[in-house]
Design a binder for these strands. Sequence first.
DNA 1: CGAAATCTTGATTGAATTCAATCTAAGTGG
DNA 2: CCACTTAGATTGAATTCAATCAAGATTTCG
Lengths: 230, 230
Amino acid sequence: MYVRTTTDQRPRPNTLDEFGLSGASAPFISLNEFTYQKGTEIFGEEEPAVYVYQVKLGAVRSYKLLLDGRRQIGAFHLAGDIFGLENGDKHRFTAEAVVETIVRLIKRESLQLMAAKDVVVSRNLLSMTTRNLEHAENHMLLLGRKTAVERVAAFLLEMDCRTGADKMSLPMSRRDIADYLGLTLETVSRALSHLRKAGVLTFLDHYQREIILNDRRRLADFDPQGSAQP
Amino acid sequence: MYVRTTTDQRPRPNTLDEFGLSGASAPFISLNEFTYQKGTEIFGEEEPAVYVYQVKLGAVRSYKLLLDGRRQIGAFHLAGDIFGLENGDKHRFTAEAVVETIVRLIKRESLQLMAAKDVVVSRNLLSMTTRNLEHAENHMLLLGRKTAVERVAAFLLEMDCRTGADKMSLPMSRRDIADYLGLTLETVSRALSHLRKAGVLTFLDHYQREIILNDRRRLADFDPQGSAQP
DNA sequence: CGAAATCTTGATTGAATTCAATCTAAGTGG
DNA sequence: CCACTTAGATTGAATTCAATCAAGATTTCG
């Protein structure tokens, strides 16, 4: 299952600090790097979880499939993000490289060993899981109750917030965005056109993955995020 | 905010074992019980998380609202379930009693203190959070990619699995179910009628919250759950 | 009892999907 | 290098599934 394109496979020892999980103990567990070509699987749903991963460069999609092929992407993982972190010993998503992607690897086993000894590590494990949970909770609200334009606006704001840069360069296709937002690719395209016509964003290239947000404020108006008092 | 109906308010010391979080240390932290009337708020979104809760009797809904009142219920909590467990110090959902509900309470503070000292407690905290995450991940798939009938079928199977009993007695209204499944109450009603006509279930009362599943196998056919190989 | 709450069912509408055509950019191989 | 294919995207038209609007039925409750 581990379809690994073996580009740049030399082992690169690193500290756990870079993984954002470090504690006092065992600061020198070696991390390896792997490169995955665009579209290749990093791990499959239901496979034993041997490694935990961190994106060094590129982007990864985690998704579930229904029997007939309908796909729901649960999250995109960008540079710095950790993914494939499981408490149980099976992966609950399939993970694929969206573009050519370099990831750091650490054995789940060694992480759990460390967590057993080091409270800091185990606390980081918990807060990481909590962040994932929080994201999933917000995404349930989006999927269950938001309109197409609201979803796309929320997506752009999320990506803008995560990439930080002024000009966004989305690595994923319209289909990926659609499967993340519970829409079709056509609807995503229409919503983006709508927002462009409304003046809140500008496309820079034909494939239109280079996007400038002209007016974050007005974009946020398209997303009714936030809780009302009952 | 803490709208507490003070029925049956006498403090009842219990062991943490009943909370399912116990470790070697501090087995005798006292737990209080509270009763909430149908429809009352247990805690609100964004409120400081002071307590962690366990349903002793009844049912609780956790939800988020959009500014215009659209509601997404993230989970129902039934007898035995723990809810309101936060890693940060704010609640991320509003929790309300679906029917008259008795809950056990424990101070979040004391739980965190215990977790700091006791690995077993902290491990239980993590696995509890992971279970919540797993549920949210599956629910994203449902909300993003399943049809109305598939959602209702999945809901019935989930409830059947959790209540265990042969005859299900759903405590929540059609509107609650709808807000859990990202549908309208009319669509939920139609889907249930559809399943009844198909013979997989039987209503026992007029309000039709008493349901018998005649054929779990055939009901499962309405839900295409499960992963296909890519 | 009358009023309110909950649910079902029917008719209509509408937002998003599906189907289809077109466009541009990026290979690919002679 | 250029013709040709492929992939990704937009846009329009038709369709569909679920939402909305509306009416009626049964139960609960004051």
